[in-house]
Design a protein around this nucleic acid. Structure first.
Lengths: 124, 124
DNA sequence: CAGAATCCTGTGAGATACTG
DNA sequence: CAGTATCTCACAGGATTCTG
């Protein structure tokens, strides 16, 4: 595990360590860290998925929240929605380049959580 | 092995790409991505802070939510609380090693958000 | 199949006041 | 200074029904 780069690093992001209440960063952060945001992102990171596949993949999500999460990410340019005009309809969701950038930065965190969650919760 | 659904499941995290609804990973994920979790973690990543400093640093957080967020992280072993028995009281909050591991994995994401948030929100 | 429209609820979260 | 203790409520989120 590489620790070297994080120590005493001058952080330019977030205006040098401040977190203004009404900045666009907070908005985007809230989109990504919304209840289902991370899970949807991670599911799509492995490739295109249809609506129904997403519902099954992101266990527990309601249709309403799936729709809402997908819409937010589409508006943010994080994922691309492609509807085929067939009957029955088929809709594919794919991460955009921007979405892949986010997902990529999410994965080290998710892997760490997967590795440590049992310890953390179990301790209690 | 089930070939039909085993497309390219090689991600080790999250038990091979599934996200069980009631797993400890979800719990820890929710703690970290709670409304104020990321911001508190990031504030403490630069070093120990006192209660009052945290309140000012994490702009907009209420006392109730600060207390609640800190308690959750302390119970998770993500931060350490040290109270001096002085008058007036002084309490320091510091990330544990575990907390530093989380914060470290959060920073690439936060830096990306800081760099791209204006584009994302502005587009709309 | 992929949603939209409704209705409803729990609780995350804010405001205020108080205290060791 | 560093917190509790209440009160309150908006809204995120769920359940159900309907449809092109």
């Amino acid at each position: 595990m590489d620790v070297s780069f994080a120590v005493n690093r001058e952080r330019p992001g977030f205006a040098g360590g401040k977190y203004p209440a009404d900045c666009s960063s907070r908005i985007v952060l809230n989109h990504i860290t919304s209840r289902w945001g991370v899970l949807v992102l991670l599911a799509l990171e492995r490739g295109t998925l249809r609506w129904g596949e997403l519902r099954r993949e992101v266990e527990g999500i309601s249709e309403k929240m799936l729709a809402s999460t997908l819409k937010t990410f589409e508006a943010d340019g994080i994922l691309h929605r492609e509807a085929q005009p067939t009957v029955p309809p088929r809709v594919d969701y794919t991460l955009t380049e921007r979405g892949r950038e986010v997902a990529m930065r999410l994965m080290p965190l998710m892997d760490w959580i997967a590795d440590n969650a049992d310890d953390i919760v179990g301790e209690r």
